[in-house]
Structures are given as structure tokens and as C-alpha cells.
Design a protein around this nucleic acid. Sequence first.
DNA 1: TAACTAATGGCAATTAATTGCCATTAATGC
DNA 2: GCATTAATGGCAATTAATTGCCATTAGTTA
Lengths: 126, 126
Amino acid sequence: MSVQRQTKQLQAIQTAFETAGRPLSIDEIHELAGRDIESLGVRTVYRAVRRLQENGDVSIVNVPGGSDRYELASVAAEHHHHFHCTACDRFFDIHGCPGGLKKLLPKGFKLEHHELTLSGLCESCA
Amino acid sequence: MSVQRQTKQLQAIQTAFETAGRPLSIDEIHELAGRDIESLGVRTVYRAVRRLQENGDVSIVNVPGGSDRYELASVAAEHHHHFHCTACDRFFDIHGCPGGLKKLLPKGFKLEHHELTLSGLCESCA
DNA sequence: TAACTAATGGCAATTAATTGCCATTAATGC
DNA sequence: GCATTAATGGCAATTAATTGCCATTAGTTA
Ligand SMILES: [Mn+2]
Ligand SMILES: [Mn+2]
Ligand SMILES: [Zn+2]
Ligand SMILES: [Zn+2]
């Protein structure tokens, strides 16, 4: 396999994830990293996110309704959930989990994962 | 406004919802109702579901990742959640709710709704 | 610095879900 | 049964997200 080059674009994208501290959509990454790299193309964001996923640095966050978000794998490693602000359409990490989900399960079903999305207004929109 | 006609197609679609007893995708509705109406077109399913939604008889269920599902509004009226079988890709109703979500909320955030999706294997796939 | 080629970015093309169009069918009321 | 027109269904067209293509740029190593 060939050597992966460390480009300004990839760096700006990684920095966007770190400074945002919340799950980002492709467009949000494009917008945030684009502040550093004025000519950043969306095509490059798609490729960078794919590569970061393949390298295990970024994980996908499937959300109900809207488009996918992505977050640092280091953040995803710790079980947590998300909050969706219906005003600004941003997602935020929610640390913790209500638990007690096994007892909700119908008989015969096998529980493997679960996903919880709270929604409402974030601090700056409330 | 004009009078809505009661067609075989619409009846078959309503029956599909009632006999399935779980949230259905457009394709599932097409498949299930198509057993009654052999020539049922997908175009008709889209229109019927839209009309049932507008009439308040059916509600949309946004699911993480996959395509939208629809369920009877009478079922949706009672707060509940869903289970997604990763083997057969079907969704099932989960009655009940873990609760205690307010305490997970960051300061300043306002909680309005929440959505929980369990996943794993349903009874027939387990 | 030069050579090599990974990476970029603009735009066309693809994919999947949904809708527009329209000739035909059939539910409704008289 | 007949007239009226809502509804159907096949297919083209649209929409939004993602990918293919490819000439150009720029990171890396010698
Ligand atoms: Mn997260
Ligand atoms: Mn349900
Ligand atoms: Zn907000
Ligand atoms: Zn199953």
C-alpha cells in the first residue's frame, strides 16, 4: 500500500472535529474546515471522512431523519447518546445512558445495541 | 373539497397496517397490500400513505439509518419506542420507556422529545 | 531541487427515494 | 345504467446525497 500524505485539508478536517467537540455533518465539516482552507471542496471532505473512518479515527453517527453525522472514534468509544437541537440542527453528545432497556424487550428478542436521541433546544437556542 | 373514494387499494393498505401490527416501510406496505391487489403500484402506495397521514390516520416513524416507516396514528398516540431486527430489517413496537432522561441533559438545554431504537434479533430471527 | 504519485476539487454521473404527468380505470350519486 | 371525476399505475423526471472522472496541485523521498 502507498503512503498516506498529511495534507492541509486533512489536518483542517481533523482539527474541525477536535474543536467542535460534537458530531458533525459533511456540510458542517466543509464549513468549519473551510475557514482554514478557503478553497476546500466537498469532494475532499467526503474522501477525508471515508479515509478517517477506514483508519479507525472517525465513526459514523446515524440519526433519525436527517443526514449522517461523524464523530471522533475516541469519543464514540465511550457509550453515550445524542441531543438534536431542532432550532440550529446541531447534534451534541449526551454522556450517560438511562439503562434498564432489557426489561422493555419482548420475549424471544435479543438485544444487541440501542440508540437514544433527545431533542429540543440547545443552550444557545433556548 | 371533493369526496374521497374508498378504493380496494386503500382498503388493502389500511388492512396491511392493521394486520402487520408494526411500523411498515413503503416497500413493506407495497408487498403486504400487494397480496390482495395483485397489480398494486408503488405510486399508489405513496399517495395512499400521504393521504392517510393528512387525514391523521397514519404517523411517520423516522428511524436511524434506514428509510422511513409508517404506523397507525392510534398506535403512535401512546408513547412508545421501537426495535429494529438487523437480520430481517423489520421494526417492532416496544411498549414502555426507560424514563429518567431529564437528568442526562446538559445545563441550559430544553428537552422536548426523545427517540429510542433498540436493535438486535427479533423472535423469529434469534 | 527533481521525480514520483497521492491528493485535490470541479463537474458530470450515479443512486435511491419520491413526485409529476397522463391516459385509463373505477367509485359514487343520481 | 350513466355521467362525473377521484384514483390508479407505469414511466419519466426530480431531488438530495454520494461517487466517478481527470487535469492539476502539492506532499514525500532521494
Ligand atoms: Mn457522540
Ligand atoms: Mn411504533
Ligand atoms: Zn441549537
Ligand atoms: Zn428479524
